[in-house]
Nucleic acid binder design. Structure first.
Lengths: 226, 226
DNA sequence: CGGAATCTTGAGCGGCTTCAAAACCTGTGG
DNA sequence: CCACAGGTTTTGAAGCCGCTCAAGATTCCG
């Protein structure tokens, strides 16, 4: 099996919630710690779901590629996030997106075989996975609702604030988000041009500061409301 | 507990896959059979997920209401479909859509308390629920991809063919789908006017026949390709 | 038959996207 | 230190897809 004997404070909380400490040890012991380089692809859309991941350090982009070639970013994952959940199923399924590291980082990895055996002993695993899966479903549903109801500007505001809360880091001058225009645009379902223009405008209004590869939100309450 | 002692052939297959027959009996015995009238609401968006459903007869619309008041149809469920999956979680969650019967029909219902107890004995339940949840997530992801990549016309073709496969009934003259323009439009993420115009055009081309509340696909292979 | 729900039709228009090209940053290597 | 090449972002102008809105036509049901 694996090589881990200890587990990080609560970075596996989503997967191991409600699991007693000794069982946690056993489960984490079945994983392998793996470091990933920036840009490394962990799996691709449509591949059989053979591995389960918990992100420890760094960020991972979850995306799809449309046949017209352009990338649809479905989410930016951060430490603690669980992905590759299909691997917990006895029935084989396929990954529904591509996972690609955005930074140098670290993940816990279980093989399907291992996680299935563990789930046999600790069925709480699949229950927790169900919780995670439902959260993903809810996120997709929310995003879809926004896409068909609100304007491009409102979607961009929403995407920025969500990113700020989940992936932003506090700095003396505001909340900094490491993201490129193109990713941000895709997350908000807006063209990169529209994203650029709106960011531009908000920078003039003193709401945020931006540079290549990042946005720093200075004054979130000054975002347009309606 | 409930009143059911027998279970229908494989209408609970999604929920009970991989569960041995005697266990199936026990699980189904924990449910209550309930008939629903057309138009009846089983639960609403945001309510705590207290009940688990398996649809036996009839159809159920799964939808959301945007704050601007208009309805977003997320899916049309048919016999065998499982919904209200959040009820299997120990952690309380909320329904992420509204379930409304479209016909007079019949459902199996479990209370959260019951299904949690059953899941304790038969953890296969939450694994199967995970499978279902991932399918929903995949469906949302697909729909989103279509919305941002293909045209309104292509989405409408897609929605129609999917409906035909899942909810359509064979007739001598084609595959008949019971659906109103407005539902169809929402499923395809198109305005009802656009839907009407396109259907009109396809009727002229002899691809389908339509009336109030239904569409009969005569010649699916004649749908526009690109 | 009346009335409500559903569907159609036309005209107008508007929010975004598209496209091309230029400007801009940033790390690299001479 | 400077120049260069790559990726990234900006800008402007043009256009279009599909939506909106209002009004009318149709169908169904009680």
């Amino acid at each position: 099996m694996g090589t881990n004997r200890s587990y990080p404070s609560d970075l596996t909380e989503r997967l191991l919630a409600g699991v007693p400490p000794d069982a946690r040890d056993a489960i984490v012991a079945g994983s392998r710690t793996r470091t990933v380089r920036s840009g490394e692809v962990l799996f691709r859309t449509g591949e059989p779901a053979e591995l389960l991941f918990v992100l420890r350090k760094g960020r991972v982009q979850f995306s799809r590629e449309s046949r017209s070639g352009h990338e649809i970013v479905m989410g930016i994952l951060g430490p603690g996030d669980v992905f590759g959940i299909g691997s917990i199923l006895t029935q084989r399924v396929h990954y529904l997106g591509t996972a690609q590291a955005l930074d140098h980082g670290e993940v816990l990895v279980w093989t399907r075989e291992t996680i299935l055996a563990l789930n046999d002993r600790y069925p709480q695993l699949s229950e927790n996975a169900l919780f995670v899966a439902l959260r993903y479903a809810a996120e997709f549903a929310d995003r879809h609702e926004r896409l068909v109801t609100v304007t491009a500007e409102q979607r961009l505001v929403g995407a920025l604030t969500r990113l700020g809360v989940r992936n932003g880091v506090r700095t003396p001058t505001g909340i900094e988000i490491r993201i490129k225009n193109e990713q941000l645009a895709s997350l908000a379902d807006v063209s990169p041009f529209t994203a650029s223009r709106l960011l531009q405008q908000w920078e003039r209004d003193g709401v945020l500061h931006k540079g290549r590869g990042f946005v720093r939100i200075i004054c979130p309450e000054k975002f347009p409301l309606d």
